[in-house]
């Protein structure tokens, strides 16, 4: 079954015909060419596909594309503007909070989802917000530091 849906992706309105059983993740990657959300488990366990949907962090593998009709979707591609990194991206670079980079887009979007609703979180709140994003490389410590750094500066 095909559905024509219209959604705002990274500030642009896009209309696409999607199949009922295709996830938002699949449609973003294969029909809209947005590949920063990664396929890590398709089970909502790893968070590599995290995007903001109407401002909230969600696993795009657990959303049917058709459910996203009318939604506003934001991915990490939208964060840097005119060559300037978003403060979260900048902090990830400065803290060496990146290794293989596969979890990074999802991790940054989870962090953004948190800071957008709670600009000055505690360390525990940061950890809670990132608990659904698995990283096998970094040991997480620098990721938490990077997010706390931005939270302290309060310019997210």
């Amino acid at each position: 079954m095909l559905h024509e849906i219209t959604l705002t992706v990274n500030g642009e309105q896009r209309t696409v015909a999607v199949k009922s059983h295709h996830t938002l993740l699949k449609v973003l990657r294969e029909q809209l060419g947005i590949t920063s959300p990664k396929i890590g488990c398709e089970n909502g366990e790893c968070g590599a596909c995290t995007v903001l949907m109407n401002g909230k962090a969600v696993n795009s593998c657990l959303v049917l594309a058709v459910e996203a009709d009318g939604a506003v979707i934001e991915t990490v591609e939208n964060l840097s503007k005119e060559g300037e990194l978003h403060p979260l991206q900048q902090a990830f670079v400065e803290h060496n909070a990146i290794q293989c980079g596969f979890c990074t887009p999802g991790m940054i979007m989870s962090a953004k989802g948190l800071l957008d609703r709670n600009p000055h979180p505690t360390v525990d709140e940061v950890k809670e917000a990132l608990a659904g994003n698995l990283c096998r490389c970094t040991g997480y410590i620098r990721i938490v530091d990077a997010v706390m750094d931005v939270a302290k500066k309060g310019d997210a």
Binding site: A57, L62, V63
Partner: peptide, 9 residues
Amino acid sequence: VGSEQVRNR
């Protein structure tokens, strides 16, 4: 329940 992302759905 689950993660933040899961709790948001």
